[in-house]
């Protein structure tokens, strides 16, 4: 009797891990979980927005949306992985449009931004803010620019990756005024850049975390976009200071599927995610970051992307940024 009980126990024990695994995995397989890879590391605006969007969309989709972060390369890693994944609607990526229209102009990327991906939705437009520590020597942008000139390219700015909108905006400032030189330190996302700023490892960082700015943990110097932010009325924008407005569409948050996904599936996903992007929960999330609730559906996103891609080439050549070295704003030093 005792032996039989023991035997039963053993068998049950055997079954337990099996049961757990199948119970957890099989429903996910049956409905096809959607994998959404986010192009930046967790903690930044894109990550938070994409997660909020995924959570809302889950309700309609009827299957889980698994959010994974694939930072690095300023967003190109996420897109490159998306392009090589199965086009069955179960693989999506959320990135900032810079990975589609800026980086391919400068880097050798394994995808074509118009041919290899299908845009589903544009769900926000970021205006990164250049922030510094509240105890820094500079309180305004002019102080900071003076300090930059005085230190001759010694000041370090943390950016959420090379070729991201904030990096481009700053590099364009540097391209216009040769006396401005910075060292750009690439991080996996704005959250990591902020932490480095707080630890004193960079002198300024590009971020969009409004709550931290309001709490006084970060001091805003400038909005790295053409127009200022209504949330930060006293902070100058690029055009306020006479710098060229990047103004192109490369700081929009975009949801992508690999090219070759069925038309019906694309429509379904786009519809569901659009509805999620209109939900109150999602819009509330955006208010914590300097992200405007810009919404473009599939058709609009497609035309937007095409137009931005063509404009980008012209602008980049005009500003002389197309062959700018990646990390240093000094135009002479060669890349690699």
């Amino acid at each position: 009797m005792k032996w039989r009980l023991l035997h039963l126990c053993r068998n049950l024990l055997w079954l337990l891990p099996y049961a757990l695994l199948t119970a957890n995995v099989s429903p996910a397989f049956a409905d096809g979980p959607v994998r959404l890879s986010v192009a930046f590391s967790p903690g930044g605006a894109l990550d938070v927005a994409a997660r909020a969007l995924a959570k809302e969309a889950e309700k309609e989709l009827g299957s889980a949306v698994i959010v994974q972060n694939t930072p690095s390369g300023g967003g190109m890693t996420a897109v490159a992985r998306l392009v090589s994944s199965r086009p069955d609607g179960s693989n999506l990526a959320a990135c900032v449009t810079n990975a589609l229209i800026f980086i391919p102009h400068r880097n050798d990327v394994p995808y074509h931004p118009l041919k290899d991906v299908e845009p589903l939705l544009v769900f926000g437009q970021a205006s990164p803010v250049l922030v510094t520590r509240p105890d820094a020597d500079w309180k305004t942008l002019d102080d900071f620019l003076d300090a930059t000139r005085k230190h001759k390219g010694e000041l370090r700015i943390g950016v959420p990756g090379l070729g991201t909108p904030s990096h481009i905006a700053l590099a364009m400032m540097a391209a216009k005024d040769p006396s401005l030189q910075w060292r750009f330190v690439p991080f996996g996302g704005p959250g990591e850049a902020e932490t480095a700023l707080l630890g004193g490892h960079v002198d300024a960082a590009a971020s969009g975390a409004l709550p931290r700015i309001r709490k006084g943990q970060l001091h805003p110097l400038m909005v790295l976009a053409g127009t200022g932010l209504s949330a930060l009325p006293d902070v100058p924008s690029l055009s306020d200071k006479g710098f060229s407005d990047p103004g192109r569409g490369d700081s929009s948050f975009i949801l992508l599927a690999p090219a070759g996904t069925e038309e019906k599936e694309l429509d379904r996903l786009s519809r569901i995610f659009e509805k999620a992007a209109r939900s109150e929960t999602f819009l509330n999330t955006l208010t914590s970051y300097s992200v405007a609730p810009v919404l473009r559906n599939r058709e609009e996103a497609k035309t937007f992307l095409k137009k931005a891609w063509e404009e980008e080439g012209t602008i980049l050549r005009a500003v002389g940024i197309a062959d700018m070295p990646a990390a240093h704003s000094a135009p002479k030093s060669p890349e690699k």
């Binding site: 090589s84 880097n107 690439p186």
Partner: peptide
């Protein structure tokens, strides 16, 4: 896979299985 900073692919020998 991918260079963690610049995002360039390396040592993938042209196979997409290794690109990740």
């Amino acid at each position: 896979g991918m260079d963690p900073v610049y995002g360039a692919s390396r040592l993938t020998f042209g196979s997409w299985q290794l690109s990740g």
